[in-house]
Each structure stands twice: as structure tokens, then as C-alpha cells.
């Protein structure tokens, strides 16, 4: 009898703790919406999302965040273009080509890189990469979309590499052997068997890496240049969504239009990252084709 009571107590204890963390997170989301939605008294959703001008402190103020959204999307895409090939190819190298000794040393280093504080990367972009870009490309400012994307790519590569590596490594040896036994070279085996069989994991890795990039604040705040304009080239400064919130929250009067607008930006960002995660789930389900032969 007593043991059953303890068991019940343990159950409810864990339930309580689980409920607490879930509720806390849920309340933050509720708070985000409560604080963000009032901006719709001043602008319509369409004006807010597709408006080209972001002048929150002017009178009358403009609350169009299209340039911020495009800033975020462009920075993320560009960092993806740089990070995906790097991350996936490094993963292929580590899982398939590197000798076990090399992989044993390099793998922890890659994972360590994932834990690099973003402020350090942002600082590096600001003081090292920016002057370098300025000189090499002969442009007036080095803090721009290219710089921020490069820094974000640095942050995304370890995530993409480490998760892809796991996926590639878990491709059954039997499939590799089957390919070799048919007279395929190692390269053909990698391209035609191993990567297709681990595609689901690789896609998940890419999406998780990029969702980290789209939500990242410090790097884009420090390295992206901060101009709320629609970028015309990769060397234009941009102001992604998270950077705007971080830069302006302190100066926005509590409860004012600007304050609500910043929370509304938070909602948009939340929708973005949420969609990214849904996509990751869907893709990993859709391409799931690993699995040894069933008997």
C-alpha cells in the first residue's frame, strides 16, 4: 500500500515540474502576443508586415518591417549558402574519409565551436572581419549583410556538421558494403548511397543550423550594420528582426506604440522559427528512408 502511495507521489511530482516549465514557456508566448497585438490599433497587419519604412520614433511614426524581414531572410539565406556546403562536406569528411584518429580529434573541436559565445563571434566580425572586408572589396563600411552572414555561417557550421555527421555515421555498414561489392568507388558510394540514405538527418541538421542563425541576435546586432533598409547588394548594411528588438527595446517608452511594435516583431520572429522547426520535423519524416532490410 505504502509503495503505491510513494509511486503516486512521484508521478504527481514529475507532472507538476513538467507542467511548471511548459506553463512558464506558454505564458511567455501569451505575454508576447498580449504586448504585440495592440500595435494593430495603429497599423494594419498588411502595413506592418509589408510596409517599407521603419521610423518608429518619427511623428507620425512608420511601422513597416518589410526591410527588417528581408534583412533577416537575406542574412539567413546567405549564411546558409556558405554554411550548408561547408558543414555537410565537413561531416562527410569526418564520417567517411578521415582516419579514425583524425576524426577523434577534429570532432570534439567542431562540437566545441558550437559552444562559442555569440558575442565573441560578433566582436570578431566587428573588429577583425569588418576592416578586412572594407579593404578587400573597397567599400565604405565593413559592417554589412556579408559580414553578418559570414559570422552566422561560422555559428551554423558546427551544428550542421555535428548533426549531419551523426546521420551519415548511422548509415548501416551493410549498405556501404553492398555498394562496394558492386564495383562502386568510395566517392560513388558516398554520393549515391550514403548521402541519400542520410538525407533526412542532413536536412534536419541544415534547418536546425539555420533556425539558430535566424534567431541569433548578438552577431547581427554587432556585425550587420543596423540600417533598416531593403538590401540591394550583399554589401549593404541590414537590420534583421532580432537586432531591431535588441537595439530599440531600451529606448522605447513602456506601453507606447514603439514598444508594442517591437513585441509584434517578436511575434513575427517567433512565427519564423516555429515554421523552421515544423519544416525540420516534416523533412526528417519525409526523407526517412534509412533502415536495414526488414525480414
Amino acid at each position: 500500500m505504502k509503495r503505491q502511495v510513494i509511486d503516486k507521489g512521484v508521478h504527481s511530482g514529475f507532472l507538476l515540474i513538467a507542467l511548471f516549465s511548459i506553463t512558464a514557456l506558454f505564458l511567455i508566448v501569451v505575454f508576447l502576443f498580449i504586448e504585440g497585438i495592440p500595435i494593430l490599433d495603429h497599423v494594419s497587419i498588411k502595413e506592418f508586415v509589408f510596409g517599407k519604412y521603419w521610423y518608429p520614433t518619427d511623428d507620425p511614426a512608420d511601422f513597416g518591417i518589410l526591410s527588417l524581414i528581408l534583412g533577416s531572410i537575406c542574412v539567413t539565406l546567405l549564411s546558409g549558402i556558405m554554411a550548408i556546403p561547408l558543414g555537410v562536406m565537413t561531416a562527410v569528411y569526418l564520417a567517411e574519409i578521415a582516419s579514425p584518429k583524425v576524426a577523434e580529434i577534429v570532432k570534439p573541436i567542431v562540437e566545441l565551436m558550437a559552444s562559442m559565445p555569440s558575442v565573441v563571434i560578433g566582436f570578431f566580425g566587428m573588429v577583425v572581419v569588418a576592416p578586412f572586408i572594407q579593404q578587400v572589396f573597397d567599400i565604405p563600411v565593413g559592417l554589412n549583410m556579408f559580414n553578418a552572414s559570414l559570422m552566422l555561417a561560422f555559428m551554423a557550421v558546427p551544428t550542421i556538421c555535428s548533426i549531419s555527421e551523426d546521420a551519415i555515421f548511422s548509415v548501416p555498414v551493410a549498405l556501404k558494403e553492398a555498394s562496394f561489392a558492386l564495383g562502386a568507388t568510395h566517392f560513388e558510394t558516398i554520393v549515391r548511397v550514403i548521402i541519400p540514405a542520410s538525407l533526412s538527418g542532413i536536412c534536419t541538421a541544415v534547418i536546425l543550423g539555420l533556425s539558430r542563425a535566424i534567431g541569433e541576435t548578438m552577431v547581427v546586432l554587432m556585425a550587420a550594420g543596423g540600417a533598416a533598409m531593403i538590401p540591394g547588394s550583399i554589401f549593404d548594411p541590414v537590420r534583421p528582426l532580432p537586432a531591431s528588438i535588441a537595439a530599440e527595446m531600451a529606448e522605447a517608452p513602456f506601453g507606447g506604440e514603439h514598444y508594442h511594435a517591437l513585441f509584434a516583431i517578436g511575434i513575427v520572429l517567433f512565427v519564423f522559427t516555429f515554421m523552421f522547426n515544423l519544416l525540420a520535423d516534416y523533412v526528417s519524416y519525409k526523407f526517412r528512408q534509412v533502415g536495414e532490410a526488414s525480414l
Partner: peptide, 18 residues
């Protein structure tokens, strides 16, 4: 690679590609 084309192999556990 040529050798393995001349000398094929079937494994203990069926291992078709996915």
C-alpha cells in the same frame, strides 16, 4: 573496383538500397 565487378557478392542479411 574492377575486381569487385568480376567477383560479385551476396551478403548474409539482405541489404537492398533504400
Amino acid at each position: 573496383v574492377t575486381l569487385r565487378r568480376q567477383v560479385g557478392m551476396v551478403f548474409q542479411k539482405p541489404n537492398p538500397f533504400p
